[in-house]
């Protein structure tokens, strides 16, 4: 008898917990849920959750849900209708989807610079390079001589696309070389591997600063930066097939991050933590960014 009473109470408690979990955890308690696909590196900086929280404060009942994958995948998934808007940084891929007519309402909301990082003793001499082509040539040469390694994201992410453009611009093709390692992983993993193997790689500044500060990549340093050719442009798009309340909320979100308030938030994000901004607001230099974007989009 005692045992069955115990069992009964255990079952009751369990049922209550389960019901509570269902109500609070598995239900989307907000009235409108807007899905966005985005890139892992952007999401991993925490900026998007930060912007999302700020937006939701002003728009109760709306929840912005980010699904973080590579840029290519983010665009592909958005195009197949699995998201209402998309936040990416791969102009040459973006243009394809614009041309297919699945994306619209293009807004550039932020930018920063890609950086070339590598071992502090810099066997390829990237520090002495005069321009980007020189950088790529030096790494290539050192690679061929067996003195350097290069780690590539190899995942069709915005960073990966950029990196491939750089090789192409320098007239080089590293694919298949022993020193050219494609790992198919995120930016963080790529940096960690580069640090472990004393290799070079291309990174976005945000992820680099975060990992550097946390001491994850002690062997890496910024060897080449602040070249306008390394500009990294973040764009937002609405997905054409998205409609109704969701579309309205998605548009409001994009308007919010490109508004003065939103741009301020972007400009100040991470400064307290890393001593320097991770992103620059796009509003100051919009026309320059737009023409650079078109150039990059044309380079596909």
């Amino acid at each position: 008898m005692e045992r069955s009473a115990l069992l009964a109470s255990a079952i009751i408690v369990l049922v209550v917990i389960v019901l509570a979990s269902y109500t609070f955890l598995l239900n989307n308690n907000s009235t409108i849920a807007v899905k966005a696909t985005t890139t892992t590196s952007l999401y991993a900086t925490g900026l998007l959750d930060y912007l999302g929280d700020k937006f939701e404060e002003k728009h109760p009942g709306v929840s912005i849900q980010f699904v973080a994958v590579g840029s290519g995948e983010a665009l592909r998934r958005a195009a197949s209708g699995d998201a209402c808007f998309v936040l990416v940084h791969a102009p040459s891929l973006e243009i394809q989807y614009i041309n297919q007519g699945v994306l619209e309402y293009h807004k550039i909301f932020a930018y920063n610079y890609f950086i070339i990082v590598g071992p502090s003793d810099d066997p390829a001499g990237v520090r002495q390079a005069t321009n980007l082509t020189d950088v790529m040539e030096r790494i290539y040469r050192a690679g061929e001589e067996g003195e350097a390694l290069f780690i590539s994201r190899g995942d069709n992410s915005g960073t990966n696309v950029k990196e491939l453009q750089l090789w192409k611009m320098a007239g080089l093709d590293p694919k298949g070389k022993q020193w050219y390692i494609e790992i198919g992983q995120g930016m963080g993993e790529t940096l960690v591997m580069a640090s472990e193997k004393n290799a070079y790689t291309l990174s976005d500044i945000g992820t680099y600063l975060k990992f550097k500060k946390d001491g994850r990549i002690p062997n890496l340093e910024i060897l080449y930066s602040n070249d306008t050719a390394l500009i990294n442009i973040y764009s937002a798009y609405l997905v054409k097939s998205c409609s109704g309340e969701e579309r309205k909320a998605a548009k409001e979100f994009i308007d919010f991050i490109t508004s003065d308030d939103g741009q301020m938030l972007i400009a100040n994000y991470g400064v307290d933590k890393y001593g320097q901004p991770l992103f620059y607001p796009a509003s100051d230099k919009l026309s320059m960014l737009e023409s650079t974007w078109s150039e990059l989009a044309g380079q596909g």
Partner: peptide, 22 residues
């Protein structure tokens, strides 16, 4: 999709934390 506050589970959190270097 590892959506914060909605579909984030232990394993996807671990993956994210790893990607973020945390």
């Amino acid at each position: 999709g590892n959506i914060k506050g909605y579909t984030r589970t232990m394993t996807t959190s671990i993956a994210l934390a790893t990607a973020m270097g945390e």
